[in-house]
Design a protein around this nucleic acid. Structure first.
Length: 515
RNA sequence: GGGGCUAUCGUCUAGGGGUCAGGACACCGCCCUUUCACGGCGGUAACACGGGUUCAAAUCCCGUUAGCCCUACCA
């Protein structure tokens, strides 16, 4: 059987689509896709893959597709699809084609629908085409006989391969079954030689064709003549070509699936897309990232008070080293890339081949740095979900002061917590601190603070120092006493910021009980 | 078992024949300081192992080991 092993060209290695894809146009628009299966929450590893697809498409002025692979009927749910859509949206990974959030019946883009279960007619037609060409065949072997044969081969210490090796001659390949009985459909795989995958990240890898077998492309149908639900490896090939995907960027757990898919592209007469298999993300202990490691779902990261921009950067920096003029980023300053810089710098050639462990410390550092750089306006939409509704909005001057005072926090939750004193009177007081700082000597000074009228920062500082002078107190004495009175604890932003954020009227009210 | 991928400080990584093996995060120390932080400065710390090739190997080759993936009518 003839099929094209099609090693990709140097231009593919460089990420150019050139004449690689389907030959027609020399400069085809780049198209990438993220194709999650809605069988659970949106995993952080999936988000990273999606991010690479998104970055690549954006860099090359191409399109990014979101496609839902819901052919696993038993595990896919509409709820999970919603979770994926919302997670992607929160993360800022907008798709040009795909489902419309919250509306299962609608989609955008010319290649819809973007849920595989809604594309059955296409798949069935393509399977029939393969059947007609003799490139696929009906297999009536039951699960039971398959299990028996598998056991027999494994007992002999060999690998079970359908109709291959010890199982050769026992398959349905030459049986010419008609459609009178229900059957699964198998794809006729080539034998002999290597199937090569020219991967943009992993390089060229070869798989002996004889290590593969005739795999099932469609499950057993409901009744005679019915073609059942096609399997993943089949749907991907059909969809990727029909959606004109030029660059298949996916997790490297799919690298082994690629040699199964390549002969299928050939059987359909399709040219190959470029492949890039990105390494996995591992937990801190080097094991596969699971619930045991803490947060795996993107929604958990959102709940932790992380900025989507920080999550994007942290995820991108796992397995990717941005290079500026051929030199890897060196300083902390250079690490803090904006989305625009990431898009500009992104290159699959600068991606690592090996798996990376998830680094929560780095994520938090990035988050802190990004918070420091943001304006209140940029932060407010994210911050709001961490602030109780009763915390009413204050004037712009207050916002400026607030951001100046609390921006040292590592997370949005830290910031919201650091702002609590500005909205709520302390319910309790730190006894030890009160005892230590609320000395008789400090009270007269406190009384003078209560009398201050001008809450301009510099003026406040000057008046404050004058009070210290009059009472022979150290800054610390008065500042800590004030913190206890205003915040209930000896920790708060700079004391003048604290005063301003609470506001004169409220300062006086909170001071009253101590005078 | 078969096939495939991977291997540099604790973590993310740069470096791809000759480097004191570089950076970032974390950690430790010092400084700053009105609290907590922020910030500044400095420090500890790595080429998985064994064989080759070579004047010279982290770098090239071959093994070994370890981890991961595929080997489903899952995706």
């Amino acid at each position: 059987m003839a099929f094209c092993i099609c090693a990709q060209t140097e231009s593919a290695r460089l990420g150019h689509t050139g004449c690689l894809i389907r030959g027609h146009s020399m400069s085809r628009q780049v198209v990438t896709r993220f194709a999650p299966s809605p069988t659970g929450m949106l995993h952080i590893g999936g988000v990273r893959t999606a991010l690479f697809c998104w970055l690549f498409a954006r860099k090359h002025g191409g399109r990014f597709i979101l496609r839902i692979e819901d052919t696993d009927l038993s595990r896919s749910t509409d709820d999970n699809i919603r979770i994926i859509e919302e997670g992607m949206a929160w993360c800022g990974l907008d798709w040009d084609e795909g489902p419309i959030v919250g509306d299962p019946g609608q989609w955008k883009g010319p290649h819809g629908p973007y849920r595989q279960m809604q594309r059955m007619d296409l798949y069935k037609a393509k399977i029939q085409e393969l059947l007609d060409k003799g490139l696929a065949y009906r297999c009536r072997c039951s699960r039971e006989t398959l299990d028996e044969r598998r056991k027999a081969v494994e007992a002999a210490g060999k690998v079970f391969q359908y109709n291959r090796g010890l199982d050769a001659g026992r398959g349905c390949a030459d049986a010419n079954h008609d459609a009178s009985e229900s059957a699964a459909i198998r794809f006729r795989m080539p034998t002999g030689g290597d199937i090569v995958v020219a991967d943009l990240i992993k390089g060229e890898t070869r798989f002996p064709a004889d290590s593969l077998d005739d795999w099932i492309i469609a499950r057993t149908g409901e009744g005679p003549g019915e073609i059942g639900v096609p399997t993943y490896n089949f749907c991907v090939v059909v969809d990727d070509t029909h959606m004109e995907v030029t660059h298949v960027i996916r997790g490297d757990d799919h690298l082994n699936n690629t040699p199964k898919q390549i002969p299928l592209f050939a059987a359909f007469g399709y040219d190959l897309p470029a492949f890039a298999h990105v390494p996995m993300i591992l937990g801190a202990d080097g094991a596969k990232l699971s619930k045991r490691h803490g947060a795996t779902s993107i929604t958990e990261y959102q709940a932790m008070g992380l900025l989507p921009s920080a999550v994007r950067l942290a995820l991108a920096r796992l397995s990717w080293t941005p290079k500026i003029d051929g030199k890897a980023v060196e300083t902390a300053e250079e690490e803090l890339l904006t989305d625009e810089q990431m898009i500009q710098l992104f290159d699959l050639a600068d991606c690592q081949k090996s798996a990376a462990r998830f680094d929560m410390d780095k994520l938090q550092w990035l988050n802190q740095k990004l918070i420091q750089r943001a304006s209140w306006q940029e932060l407010e939409p994210h911050l709001r979900s961490f602030m109780p509704a009763e915390w009413t909005v204050k004037p712009d001057a207050w916002k400026a002061q607030a951001i100046h005072a609390t921006q040292k926090g590592k997370s949005l939750t830290d910031m919201a917590e650091a702002l609590r004193f500005a909205f709520e009177r302390p319910a309790t007081f730190d006894e030890k601190a009160a005892e230590k700082f609320m000395t008789p000597a400090v009270k007269p000074a406190l009384r003078e603070v209560a009398a201050l009228a001008d809450y301009n920062h510099d003026r406040l500082e000057a008046d404050f120092n004058a009070i210290l002078e009059r009472h022979s107190l150290k800054t610390k004495d008065l500042a800590q006493a004030l913190r206890v009175a205003l915040c209930g604890k000896p920790v708060s932003p700079g004391i003048f910021d604290t005063l301003i954020l609470v506001g004169r009227e409220e300062v006086v009210a909170r001071l009253e009980r101590w005078l």
